[in-house]
Computed example of a mutant assay.
Amino acid sequence: MVTVEQVRQVAVALPRAYEVLVRDRIKFRVGSIVFAALSADETELGFGYPKEARDALVAAEPDKFFLPRTSDLRFHWVQARLAALDAEEMRELVIDAWRMCVPKRVAAEHLRVLGLS
Score class of each variant (00 low, 15 high):
G46T: 13
V20I: 12
W77V: 01
R91T: 15
A53G: 12
L93Y: 03
V102S: 03
I33C: 05
M100A: 12
I95K: 13
V58F: 09
R81C: 03
V102H: 08
E89P: 02
D72R: 09
E5K: 06
Q6P: 01
A17L: 10
R29S: 03
I26V: 15
V94G: 02
E89A: 14
V7M: 02
R29T: 05
M100Y: 13
K27E: 11
Y18L: 05
D24E: 13
P50D: 04
R99P: 01
A97Y: 03
M90N: 02
H110C: 04
G31L: 11
M100Q: 12
V58I: 15
F47I: 02
A53T: 07
M100G: 02
P68A: 06
R16L: 15
A40T: 09
R54N: 09
F47A: 01
S39E: 00
V12Q: 05
A53Q: 14
K51I: 10
G48K: 14
W98C: 03
A11H: 07
I26G: 00
G46Y: 11
P50C: 11
V4K: 13
P50F: 04
L93M: 05
A60E: 15
Y49T: 06
D41G: 01
P50H: 08
L21P: 00
V113N: 06
E19P: 08
R8L: 01
A17T: 08
G115T: 13
A108H: 14
E52A: 13
K104T: 14
C101H: 10
R54P: 10
E109G: 10
V34K: 02
R99N: 10
E61I: 02
L82V: 09
K104C: 03
G48F: 06
H76N: 15
D24R: 03
G31E: 11
F65M: 09
A11I: 06
A97I: 00
I95L: 12
L85I: 08
E89D: 09
D72P: 00
Y18P: 00
L116W: 14
Y49V: 08
T70Y: 11
E52I: 04
V34S: 06
V12M: 02
A60V: 07
P62K: 10
L82G: 05
Q79T: 06
D55E: 15
V113G: 04
V12G: 03
V30A: 03
V113A: 14
I95H: 07
L111Q: 12
I95Y: 08
K27D: 00
I26K: 06
R23L: 03
V7W: 04
Y18C: 08
L85E: 07
L82T: 03
L93Q: 05
S71C: 07
C101N: 13
H110D: 15
L67Y: 03
D24Y: 00
D96W: 01
A97G: 15
T3Q: 00
K104G: 15
A56C: 08
D41F: 06
V22S: 05
R8E: 07
V113S: 02
A80K: 02
T3W: 00
V94K: 09
E19K: 06
D72Y: 15
W77C: 02
L14Q: 09
L21A: 07
L57G: 09
A108V: 08
E89G: 05
E92K: 13
A40Q: 11
K104A: 14
L57A: 11
M100N: 05
L114P: 11
K51H: 13
Q6F: 12
E89V: 15
A37M: 13
P62G: 07
A107Y: 07
S39Y: 02
P68N: 04
